[in-house]
Design a protein around this nucleic acid. Structure first.
Length: 443
RNA sequence: GACCCGUUCGUCUAUCGGUUAGGACUCCAGGUUUUCAUCCUGGCAAGAAGGGUUCGACUCCCUUACGGGUCGCCA
């Protein structure tokens, strides 16, 4: 029997990382076993559903690379895949409950009568869990059909899982206590229950529940910050799942090959944004220069910085130095225009070097005299200037970096020299000599 | 409050009775790089607490504490 999993979001807000990870685990599980992954939109709450939210789910799934085999836009043998279009199916199943005498009217709504007995589930992650339904105070009979004739989540969710022949339900731990309700319904229908796997929730760094407003919660924010989809998938997979090895950077294909529910743990995980960024960098590094440049370009354009002919070379110079694509503009701005700022602390550091100003002054003159500019020529000139002053070349390289870029960190000095060219380098060194004047006050 | 799940470095985690409790992020130090970063090496840092069971417990059991979840005509 082939595996069938589903992701069943309700379009009432933006797709958040918790939901994305639920979708991911269902997707990985199905792909790992050659099964079928289904997307079903649970849009029964008309008051809260929005088209934007629906689109956010589709967009988010597409961005993450989680394609579905059956569902909206795809079709399938068990449609429709929007619950709002399945009313007649639900009516049929509801009638079974009526015929079996398992529902009774209460204030216009219909309640499902639970069997008063202990219900045990065998969760693939949580193990054997028993809830005692003899305790009615804790488990009142649930409404399955509202007084307005619409059906509630528990009912439609169970009916659809049965109708769609779902074999494995992988969902957030917040549904663990709902499972006995679902099991009771399935039993009343005479159906076969799918296997359940309840995965731990994702928490904020401070341990509180992550909700839509929290940093990092909305999947839609990730592209804008310059995360790669593969990196986000990789990181959220690590929240609650482990390969049981020392490796933690994986491509989609590797995750598919390694995923199993046995390696999902039960404790909730906190979201560590720092590590998420690091994972992103690990995915940025193996990119080709062409891909990186193409990915970085929109971020630079968005800031209004000029994007010259040699932008590819500029972006390539910072390829392995940024964690997010969003960092690229600030990392290359001094290569794209002359109006960049000098970091006061770094300038102060250079000022502390007594001979720096003099050496840079000589260097500016020497640069200007270079007949054929190249990074090598410039470096060799730098070596000569340093040597004639009795200094080591290394002592001049940091001041030169600051003169050219205004900061302590950045691309390789050779790249900077090449990218900037003779005129700009000379001019910037001269300007920086002036900035170094103790009384100039001009930063 | 009742019920359920959980608890290893600050964070993500490995360990399925016997380990100097391992790895990763972060941070710090040193090395490489004539510069920055990468990289390499090293360092800081953990079994919530108390009882059992056992020759031996992070691992099994109980209690307590703490955290999370659920108790809707929301999903």
């Amino acid at each position: 029997m082939s595996v069938r999993t589903r992701f069943a979001p309700s379009p009432t807000g933006y797709l958040h990382v918790g939901g994305a990870r639920t979708a991911l685990f269902n997707w990985l599980f199905a792909r790992n076993l050659g099964g079928t992954f289904i997307l079903r939109v649970e849009d029964t709450d008309e008051a809260r559903n929005t088209d934007e939210a629906k689109q956010a789910i589709f967009d988010g799934m597409a961005w993450l690379g989680l394609d579905w085999d059956e569902g909206p836009g795809k079709g399938g043998d068990y449609g429709p895949y929007f619950q709002s279009e399945r009313k007649s199916i639900y009516d049929t199943w509801f009638q079974k409950l009526v015929d079996a005498g398992r529902v009774y009217e209460d204030g216009g709504a219909w309640r499902f009568r639970f069997e008063r007995k202990p219900v045990t589930m065998n969760d693939l992650v949580c193990g054997e869990v028993t809830i005692d339904y003899r305790d009615e105070s804790n488990t009142p009979d649930m409404v399955v059909k509202r007084s307005d004739g619409s059906y509630v989540f528990h009912f439609v969710n169970v009916v659809d899982d049965l109708e769609m022949k779902i074999t494995h339900v992988i969902r957030g731990e917040d549904h663990l206590m709902n499972t006995p309700k679902h099991l009771q319904l399935i039993e009343a229908f005479g159906g076969t229950a799918p296997q359940y796997a309840h995965i731990p929730l994702i928490l904020n760094p401070d341990g509180s529940k992550m909700s839509k407003r929290d940093a990092g919660a909305a999947v839609g924010d990730y592209p804008r910050q310059g995360f790669l989809p593969g990196a986000v998938v990789n990181f959220i997979a690590l929240l609650g799942w482990s390969s049981k090895t020392d490796e933690e950077i994986f491509t989609m294909d590797q995750l598919v090959a390694r995923f199993s529910l046995e390696n999902v743990n039960r404790a909730p995980a906190r979201f560590d944004f720092e590590k998420c960024k690091w994972v992103n960098q690990q995915h940025l590094i193996p990119m080709t220069v062409e891909d990186f440049v193409a990915a970085a370009k929109p971020f630079v354009e968005a800031t209004g910085l000029p994007v010259p002919e040699n932008f590819g070379a500029v972006a390539a110079a910072v390829k392995d130095k940024v964690r997010l694509l969003e960092e690229v503009p600030a990392a290359v701005d001094f290569l794209l225009c002359d109006a960049f700022t000098y970091d006061p602390e770094t300038v102060e550091k250079v000022r502390g070097n007594a001979s720096a100003k003099e050496l840079l002054a000589s260097l500016a003159a020497a640069f200007n005299a270079i007949p054929e500019w190249s990074a090598d020529a410039a470096k060799s000139t730098l070596g000569d200037v340093a040597k004639s002053a009795g200094a080591k070349p290394g002592q001049l390289m940091f001041p030169l970096r600051v003169a050219l870029s205004g900061r302590a960190h950045g691309p390789d000095l050779g790249d900077i020299l090449n990218l900037l060219g003779k005129e700009r380098c000379t001019a910037r060194v001269m300007k920086f000599v002036v900035i170094l004047q103790p009384c100039s006050g001009g930063l």
